[in-house]
Design a protein around this nucleic acid. Structure first.
Lengths: 186, 186
DNA sequence: CCGACGTGAGAACGCTCGTTCTCGCTTCCC
DNA sequence: GGGAAGCGAGAACGAGCGTTCTCACGTCGG
């Protein structure tokens, strides 16, 4: 069973990296096989189809993102600092040289119009982020409108950083968040 | 010559609608031909390749977007109202039933990793929007950091409205923009 | 030592794609 | 009226896709 999960991990690692950097339809299964170092036979015994790999990869990405974000947030105690920590997490992420935007937003552009399964997974991921923001805003005692505003800032920072290639977007979003938080708590 | 431009327009109309709603690789040239009501022969005499259609379509979309946005902004006189008009424009756009996010952000996800020409066109479009925001913020006498913050709000509203399917994102972004503008002008 | 099984490498399959070519028909100019 | 050019419809082509199959080989229980 370990061998089986190992194959799945290797395939998901390779698929995540390739699909994230080049998109889904631009990457063939042969390339995934080569990058994973796995035979096509084993690959298709671990996953029934390419789409199932995409779905599994997005699920794993969602869990990684959620875990990492929570870790950064939980390193702070002050409710205001916990909110702002979200943008610090974004800042560190944007600095990664292989950063090419939010994988879920990218997937939505390519597959959102044709794959309902992928669409609902993307939606769930973004909803979970909004819930997280609502929790943090609530902890700080802020009124309800703050949370969606903070989430919108985070989303905008991601696409701006990706397309303009400007990691400073996280700083701008953080500065705006500070103003909004302070205004909401006043 | 009119016939030639007519063919181009018909093809671009069809391609824009199809590519925007389903993505690029999910739509074949046969489908574009059917929707455009043009023979494949004429289609390929007007455009050398599928990618050239994508590029022409994005350029046209950029001009439409810029023109429409300027019209809404120019319907206001007060500098503060001109800034907020941007989010009113977004609000009206999100209400369109065929809205599926920003076509440029979507294109970036699918083609940004493989087509440099498409990437630089997308970048130019987003840069032009940031420039527009900088002009509006400058008109209002706001300090420099405001403009990127307003732009990030607009980008975030677009992806949030698209993925969550929530048109209210424009309202949240507008409310946040009001707070940021007032804080910057205080 | 042997046969059954599981595996890796990659050929093969069926399909779809972007693009080009064929062919019969229309059109229009002289 | 005749021939050359342009056109639409769709077949054809070559490539690439996701997926499956073949086959030779290694492994291992008996």
């Amino acid at each position: 069973m370990t061998a089986e999960t190992d194959v799945r991990e290797r395939v998901l690692d390779a698929a995540d990296s390739l699909f994230y950097s080049r998109g889904f339809s631009a990457v063939g299964m042969d390339e995934v096989r080569d990058a994973a170092g796995v035979s096509l036979r084993r690959l298709y015994s671990a996953f029934p189809s390419k789409e199932s790999i995409v779905l599994a990869m997005l699920e794993r990405r969602h869990e990684q993102w959620t875990t990492e974000l929570r870790a950064v947030v939980d390193s702070r105690d002050d409710p205001r600092a916990r909110i702002l920590a979200v943008y610090d997490y974004l800042s560190a992420w944007f600095a990664d040289e292989s950063f090419r935007g939010c994988g879920f937003i990218n997937a939505f552009g390519e597959l959102g119009g044709v794959s309902p399964a992928v669409t609902s997974l993307i939606r769930a991921h973004k909803q979970s982020f909004q819930d997280e923001m609502a929790r943090l805003a609530d902890e700080a005692g802020a009124p309800p409108p703050l949370a969606p505003q903070l989430a919108i800032l985070a989303e905008g920072a991601q696409t701006t950083a990706a397309i303009a290639g400007d990691p400073l977007a996280a700083g701008h979003a953080r500065a705006a968040a500070e103003i909004l938080v302070d205004a909401a708590l006043a």
